[in-house]
């Protein structure tokens, strides 16, 4: 399989379960990012789901082996590309977009849906980057209840290089900063779905990776899957919340391993 060398590791998977995102810097053909950005700059109306017809080069991004490797790891070999996609063009001078989760509040505790955010040009802090809050993906929180937050501990602005493809859990809290620059900020959002449950791990799994003892000294500095899953706490939440999210992570990990109850 062409994508096999791009499958995620156990550590990558554990980090995704803890933080809810994975960033891939794509090795795209020379000039592709620029070509896509140029076509987007020239669009005068948003074609909605038909953005891939207006800019067919986007398929070279979505079907890139690095993207496929990460998606197979997270959603299984037979994952689906949802027909919904959207070009988010943030114009110079436009304000921020407040925190939200997409869709309705019926959150799962599995990895069944992912967002893919592609940036064809380099994004600076002034250009209105997408901002995500690692560790919020398992929270069943009405978007209305987020209206009194502006900045949240551990938030990550996706100030990224051209050709970056950020994969996030569908339920990860996200928003955007204001665009204070003089240029349009482009991001194309894709959706991906799981179509079947895992019977075996779909990533580059090493059974030995799970033979680690809990390291109470390393905690948040842990570099192995077992301890990342146990101690990761990117938001710095309370003990009660941390214990709950740890239980959810381990249940999710077991599902991904194919160990359904």
């Amino acid at each position: 399989m062409n994508d096999s060398k791009h499958l995620l590791t156990d550590v990558d998977m554990a980090r995704f379960l803890v933080s809810g995102y994975h960033v891939v810097e794509l090795e795209l053909p020379a000039g592709l990012n620029e070509k896509i950005a140029g076509k987007l700059d020239a669009l005068t109306a948003n074609p909605g789901d038909a953005i891939t017809e207006a800019v067919p080069e986007l398929w070279k991004v979505v079907e890139h082996p690095q993207v496929r490797g990460a998606l197979i790891s997270l959603l299984g070999e037979d994952y689906g590309v949802n027909s919904h996609r959207h070009w988010h063009c943030k114009l110079p001078g436009s304000g921020d977009m407040q925190w939200h989760q997409d869709g309705t509040n019926n959150r799962g505790t599995t990895i069944d849906r992912l967002l893919g955010l592609y940036y064809p040009h380099t994004i600076t802090a002034e250009m209105g980057p997408t901002v995500i809050v690692p560790g919020t993906q398992f929270r069943n929180a009405p978007t209305d209840r987020m209206a009194t937050y502006s900045n949240i501990r551990g938030q990550v602005p996706l100030t990224v290089q051209a050709g970056t493809f950020a994969i996030t859990h569908y339920d990860l809290w996200h928003g955007t900063a204001s665009n204070r620059s003089g240029v349009k900020r482009h991001m194309i959002k894709f959706l991906f779905n799981r179509t079947s449950e895992n019977r075996t791990p779909s990533w580059n799994h090493d059974p030995a990776a799970l033979n680690r003892e809990r390291d109470w000294d390393a905690r948040d500095r842990a570099q192995d899957a077992v301890n990342i899953l146990s101690f990761g706490n990117p938001l710095g939440v309370s003990q009660s919340d941390h214990y709950k999210e740890r239980i959810i992570r381990h249940a999710c990990w077991e599902e991904l391993m194919g160990n359904q109850e």
């Binding site: 921020d96 250009m127 901002v131 502006s150 900045n151 938030q155 100030t159 955007t176 900063a177």
Partner: peptide, 11 residues
């Protein structure tokens, strides 16, 4: 207007 910071936020 309140605003999400696009850079480093100082608490």
């Amino acid at each position: 207007e309140i605003e999400i910071s696009g850079g480093e936020f100082e608490w």
